[in-house]
């Protein structure tokens, strides 16, 4: 099972992981095509490099939680957790109620910036040979690892952040 290992001490905040995410989810799947028509038609990234309380870069990604708050809050049934451990959204079903957006403790259930008003989130690059964010990380802060256990979420932190009191179980 493919998971994402994160050594956040290596993150320099370049946001290349965000750009890779934008590109791979755009129609042409390259950075060039994603920006070809200007920002009006470009979908935002499903990840975000944030600053932690010590003001250090913190690459924020969907955990694909074992007990996902977003799935629990989803009113339409669009969000499901698959056998591969990935929590994904079926855009044909999503109605854009944003209950997931309000319930995700990590801010990784995001409203689309496009006109359809649906939610977007990390799909773990299911079906792609490599995870786009991992391939684009110049620091090797992000790496892909193969593990047997589908539980415990999608992310493996070298330096685990403090658990969020109101969060779902990663």
């Amino acid at each position: 099972m493919r998971k994402k290992a994160i050594d956040r001490s290596k993150c320099r905040g370049c946001k290349n992981c965000e750009l890779a995410c934008i590109a791979v989810h755009s129609a042409g799947t390259t950075t060039h095509t994603a920006y070809a028509t200007g920002m009006k038609t470009t979908e935002r990234a499903r990840n975000k490099v944030e600053a932690d309380p010590q003001n250090k870069s913190f690459p924020q990604f969907c955990r694909h939680c074992d007990e996902p708050a977003c799935v629990e809050a989803c009113t339409s049934g669009a969000l499901t957790k698959g056998a591969d451990g990935l929590v994904v959204c079926d855009h044909d079903i999503c109605i854009g109620c944003y209950m997931c957006v309000m319930s995700c403790p990590y801010g990784m259930a995001r409203p689309s910036v496009q006109t359809d008003g649906k939610m977007i989130k990390c799909d773990g690059c299911r079906g792609r040979d490599v995870m786009a964010c991992v391939a684009a990380c110049p620091q090797r802060c992000l790496t892909a690892v193969e593990v047997d256990d589908p539980g415990g979420g999608h992310l493996i932190y070298a330096d685990e952040p403090a658990p969020n009191a109101c969060g779902s179980k990663p």
Partner: peptide, 26 residues
């Protein structure tokens, strides 16, 4: 190895202390 995508697109600006700013949909 990996190149900076914002630099390649020309949408990183380092002209002032408020930056570097990078253009994204957000």
């Amino acid at each position: 190895g990996v190149r900076c995508g914002y630099g390649e697109l020309g949408v990183c600006c380092r002209l002032c202390s408020n930056g570097p700013c990078r253009i994204t949909p957000d």
